[in-house]
Design a protein around this nucleic acid. Structure first.
Lengths: 118, 118
DNA sequence: CCAATTGTTCAAGAACTTTTGAACTAAGGA
DNA sequence: TCCTTAGTTCAAAAGTTCTTGAACAATTGG
């Protein structure tokens, strides 16, 4: 079972900007960027919003083409679509992340990579 | 009579992103960027929205700190706050404008600079 | 099989944003 | 002074987006 994602050339600038204009979603992206390459499960973001609400925000990010979600067993592994975003809008993600500031506003939480919850 | 503008350090990233996430406002910014340095009167944007609606969108841009509006007689001259945005969020404006594409979707309309309407 | 875990969907409500027209202000020119 | 031009403000309507809880689905472990 795979989830719908736009392909690179379908990613729209106003939609991406609008999606990043929400503080919860910006925090998610910031955190993903700080853990670049490590797929994180949805539950890693539970400090930012309720489970239902996270589902909503993560769907917005996915539908906008900002993140990719892969179903792995009972988890959904989320990654930033950095290469696609860099290809489509060079420099945009970097400047947004830099502008958002150094440290992501989320607990570091322990552990060996591939962050399936403990 | 001067209008309220946030100062540079009050400009907020999510607010700027949210404001640029609207196609009408993105088009305004694109056009301002293409005429960098030339103050444009509000009426230059009448192809993008009705007069009332423009007033609304231009106020959003101004309140977010993206544009500056100066009252000159019966006109309001609008400029991009490029230096302030570059100082606060380096590279962001450039990558947004580059991502938005080459040619601004607005008639070039004739003329000698300082674009007060004909 | 049963229970727990992970996450979704649905429907409702609250809260914003956008768009509109009518009425207005303020400056400038005849 | 009166008229025009440039743009605003207000209030209402329309449309979106966000948040919530309750109910659901799928996978894994005992």
């Amino acid at each position: 079972m795979t989830l719908p994602h736009p392909n690179t050339d379908q990613i729209s600038l106003p939609i991406v900007l609008g999606v990043l204009g929400d503080p919860t979603r910006l925090a998610i992206v910031r955190y993903l960027a700080s853990k670049e390459g490590v797929p994180l499960s949805c539950s890693r973001f539970l400090d930012l919003a309720s489970k239902t609400n996270l589902s909503y925000h993560l769907a917005k990010l996915r539908e906008a083409g900002v993140t990719r979600a892969e179903v792995v067993g009972t988890n959904r592994m989320i990654t930033l679509r950095r290469a696609d975003l860099d290809a489509r809008f060079p420099g945009l993600l970097d400047s947004v992340i830099a502008a958002a500031g150094g440290d992501p506003a989320l607990p570091a939480v322990g552990g060996h990579d591939l962050e399936v919850p403990a």
